[in-house]
Simulated scan of single mutants.
Amino acid sequence: MASYYSSLLTPSTASTLCLCLFLLLAGMSSAQLSSNFYSTSCPKALSTIKSAVTSAVSSEARMGASLLRLHFHDCFVNGCDASVLLDDTANSTGEKTAGPNNNSLRGFNVIDTIKSQVETACPGVVSCADILAVAARDSVVALGGPSWSVLLGRRDSTTASLSAANSNIPGPGLSLSGLITAFSNKGFTAKEMVALSGSHTIGQARCTIFRSRIYNEANINSSFATSRKAICPSTGGDNNLSPLDITSPTSFDNAYFKNLQLQKGLLHSDQELFNGGSTDSQVNTYSSNSATFFTDFANAMVKMGNLSPLTGTSGQIRTNCKKTN
C-alpha cells in the first residue's frame, strides 16, 4: 500500500499536495465568521448581550450611539479586534488616549458588565470583539433602527495601536474627498461611507468639535447656527453637548439626511456630504427613502464588522476586556 501511494507521489504531485494542504490550513486559520458561531458553545450569548444593551439604552438613550461608536472606532484601527478596549499598561499604550477617543469614547462600563455576565454563563468563550459587534447592532435596534445578522467568531488582540487610532479614524474636519479616501482605505465605497455617516442620526458632539463650523462656515442654516451658539460659546464650554441630529436625537431614522438638505449638519464632515458634491444625490435618496437607508446601513455594518478579524488561533479570548490574559 505504501509503495502504491509512493509511486503516485512524484516530486511534482507531492509539492502540489503540500501546497494544497498549506492553503487548506491557512484557510482554516482565517476561517470565515459565522452567525451561529456560539449556538453550541454559548447559546445564551446573544440574548445576554441584547438584554444588557436594551437595559443600558433604556436608562440612557445616548448610550446606544456610544456603543455603536465603540465598534466603529475598534474596526477602523487594525480591524475588529477589541483593541480599543485595552487600558494603558507600564509596557504598552492603548488607543483610549488617541485624539479621536480621548474624553470622547464611552460605554466601556457597559461592555465590562456584558463581558462579566457572558463569562459567568460561558467562561472563556465569547470574545470582547464579538460583544462590541453585537452591542452595536442591538443599540441601533433599541433606538428604532434596522437589524442585521452579526457574523461571529472574532478573537481579541493582544496589542493596541495609538498611532493607528490617531491616523485611521476619520475626523470631523475632513473634506468630502478626505472622507471618501479615509473610507476607501478600508474598502468602502462613497455610497457606503454616506450610509455609515447616517449613524449620526443618534449621539452627541462636544462644543470643541463643532465650534469652528457654527462660527466660521457659511453653508449653515442661520437659525440653527444661532441655537448651537447658545450651547457652545466662542470660548469656554468645550465639553457642552449638542445632538448630531437635532430633529430626533434618540431615534435611529433618516432625519440626519433631511437636516443636511437644510444645511443643519452639526459637524463640518456632516455637511460635506451635502454641499454641491458627488454625494448630494445619495443624501437625497436617503432623505426620501428611509428603507433604502436602513438596508444600505445594515449591509455596510456587516461589511465593517468583517474588517480584518482575528480568527482560528490568532489572538485570544480575553477574560477581562480591559487587559490581555
Score class of each variant (00 low, 15 high):
residue 1 M to V: 04
residue 9 L to V: 05
residue 12 S to E: 15
residue 24 L to F: 11
residue 25 L to H: 13
residue 26 A to D: 06
residue 29 S to I: 13
residue 31 A to I: 09
residue 33 L to Y: 10
residue 34 S to E: 10
residue 35 S to D: 09
residue 36 N to Y: 04
residue 36 N to Q: 14
residue 38 Y to K: 02
residue 40 T to P: 02
residue 41 S to R: 13
residue 45 A to S: 14
residue 47 S to D: 12
residue 48 T to D: 01
residue 50 K to S: 08
residue 50 K to W: 01
residue 55 S to E: 02
residue 56 A to Q: 07
residue 57 V to T: 07
residue 58 S to G: 12
residue 60 E to W: 00
residue 66 S to L: 05
residue 67 L to T: 05
residue 69 R to F: 05
residue 69 R to Q: 12
residue 70 L to I: 01
residue 70 L to D: 03
residue 71 H to A: 07
residue 74 D to R: 07
residue 75 C to P: 06
residue 77 V to S: 14
residue 81 D to I: 09
residue 82 A to F: 05
residue 86 L to W: 00
residue 94 G to V: 03
residue 96 K to D: 00
residue 96 K to W: 02
residue 101 N to H: 06
residue 102 N to G: 01
residue 102 N to D: 03
residue 103 N to P: 00
residue 103 N to Y: 14
residue 104 S to N: 15
residue 104 S to C: 04
residue 106 R to M: 03
residue 107 G to W: 04
residue 109 N to F: 03
residue 115 K to P: 10
residue 118 V to F: 07
residue 122 C to S: 10
residue 123 P to S: 08
residue 123 P to C: 07
residue 132 L to F: 04
residue 138 D to P: 15
residue 139 S to P: 11
residue 140 V to Q: 08
residue 150 V to M: 11
residue 162 L to R: 11
residue 164 A to C: 06
residue 165 A to T: 04
residue 166 N to D: 15
residue 167 S to C: 02
residue 168 N to L: 06
residue 173 G to Q: 03
residue 175 S to Q: 02
residue 177 S to L: 08
residue 178 G to W: 07
residue 181 T to K: 13
residue 185 N to R: 10
residue 185 N to T: 09
residue 189 T to P: 11
residue 189 T to K: 14
residue 189 T to R: 15
residue 194 V to G: 00
residue 206 R to L: 01
residue 207 C to T: 06
residue 209 I to L: 13
residue 213 R to N: 03
residue 222 S to I: 08
residue 224 F to E: 02
residue 224 F to C: 01
residue 226 T to P: 04
residue 226 T to H: 01
residue 228 R to Y: 02
residue 231 I to K: 13
residue 235 T to A: 09
residue 236 G to D: 10
residue 236 G to W: 14
residue 236 G to L: 11
residue 240 N to G: 04
residue 240 N to D: 02
residue 248 S to D: 12
residue 256 Y to R: 03
residue 260 L to Q: 06
residue 260 L to I: 05
residue 265 G to P: 02
residue 266 L to D: 03
residue 267 L to D: 11
residue 267 L to M: 11
residue 268 H to W: 13
residue 269 S to F: 01
residue 276 G to K: 09
residue 276 G to M: 13
residue 277 G to P: 02
residue 281 S to I: 07
residue 282 Q to V: 08
residue 285 T to D: 15
residue 285 T to L: 15
residue 287 S to N: 08
residue 287 S to G: 13
residue 296 D to L: 06
residue 299 N to F: 06
residue 301 M to W: 15
residue 302 V to Q: 12
residue 311 T to W: 02
residue 314 S to H: 06
residue 314 S to K: 08
residue 315 G to T: 05
residue 323 K to H: 12
residue 325 N to P: 14
